[in-house]
Nucleic acid binder design. Sequence first.
RNA 1: AGAGGAGUGGUAGAGCGGUUUAUUGCACCGGUCUUGAAAACCGGAGACCCUUCACGGGGUCCGGGGGUUCGAAUCCCUCCUCCUCUGCCA
Length: 424
Amino acid sequence: MLQVHVLREETNRVIDGLKKRNFKDADSLVNEAILIDKNRKEVQKQADDLKAKSNIDSKKVGELMKAGKIEEANTIKSAVALDKQNIKSGEERLEELEKRLQEILYKIPNVPHPNVPAGKGAEDNTNVYEHGAVPMLYPGALPHWELIKKYDIIDFDLGVKISGAGFPVYKGKGAKLQRALINFFLAEAEKAEYIEIQPPIVVNEASGYGTGQLPDKEGQMYFATEDGLYLIPTAEVPITNMYRDVMVQEENLPIKNAGYTPCFRREAGSWGAHVRGLNRLHQFDKVEIVQITKPENSYNTLDEMCLHVQGLLEKLELPYRKLLLCGGDMGFNSAMTYDMEVFSAAQQRWLEVSSVSNFETYQANRLKLRYKNKEGKTQLLHTLNGSALALPRIVAAILENNQTEEGIRIPEILRKYTGFDWIK
RNA sequence: AGAGGAGUGGUAGAGCGGUUUAUUGCACCGGUCUUGAAAACCGGAGACCCUUCACGGGGUCCGGGGGUUCGAAUCCCUCCUCCUCUGCCA
């Protein structure tokens, strides 16, 4: 969430920025937040002054009692009791105002970076880079949902039987390919000096709020009602929340973490025509990279993280393009996002396999994630994350792009992880 | 899961209803001394909110929340976490 003082001091920048997202209520929400905050300050001032007075009076009671002046003490006592009433009602109003302010702030998305183009949706994203040639497939080449049956490596029907749609079972070389990719991604992350994390894959409510899945997106997460825990939709949630309420030492920056986890998404309402096979699942595997940086470094870091992801795709010999998302297509929390899409040759479609974002202070403000700068001032840090990478669509592209009449060729770089060169 | 114990500033650890603006040691930072360092001595240190152009001032924070009281780190309730013992189980 944005800081109120930013709304107050940079009102026009915020409102103009939000308009790039097509965010309709920008004017009214921002102005309402400023107004409530002003009100809040007045109420707090009154309550604080009254508290200061009753603190002094209470101390006086103690002194008078000690001196044996019971009469005078009792007079002050009753005065303090009256002040207490007023303090209590002031605090109730304060609490109410703070709650209302918070609710409004939760509704305001992050302000896009100046370089983010305005736009409504996917059609307004900017293609900033393309790499690799689209492979020519032999006649009769198959989409991945046919290939997995032909070679018996992933079984959706079995998943339906034991869980439901969107929970595939990986078998034999399918399972090993999956495991090989995870190991490859983690090894590459380690080379890039990310510390590996194995976090819990269920999180509490506070963590959901910390990274911004709550309060709005609870419908997208699986929820264990008995224990009040959510299944994570991405490793971003547990990993970034490790730093909730943390004051980082400057010499420990930047923080670089990478983690492999399964991810769970209910995908309520997002099932449609293009979601066959591995294109969209309720459970999938992903390696996520997370960085926490000083504000002045975060955009260099965003580039660095993109290049890391691009390197992975190049090593896997997958043709890809890099998109700068427009305001309307960006996630709620993000100030700037690049998507990486691989070309899946049999489907003849671009598939999103990574999303790399800079949240600036938007998450850090909720998380209370800060450091002390050289002047000794406490400052919010910037958080960033990116998929490196999400597995299912990578698997789909590898299967489709590398198919031959003899079988599916495993990319060179993966062979030491899979232990086999072909799926036949 | 049951019984008992405990959660205090970076850390260790006092305080158990009003001289606490929370003792003190260690660690930390600054200074004196020293060629330099160590030791010694002196001094300083937190977070958040409000107020002020600024100096400063006020408020809140002793695991979280609630209560008793004129006044709570201190008493009561509740939740969380940790430790010990018992039970159960990968």
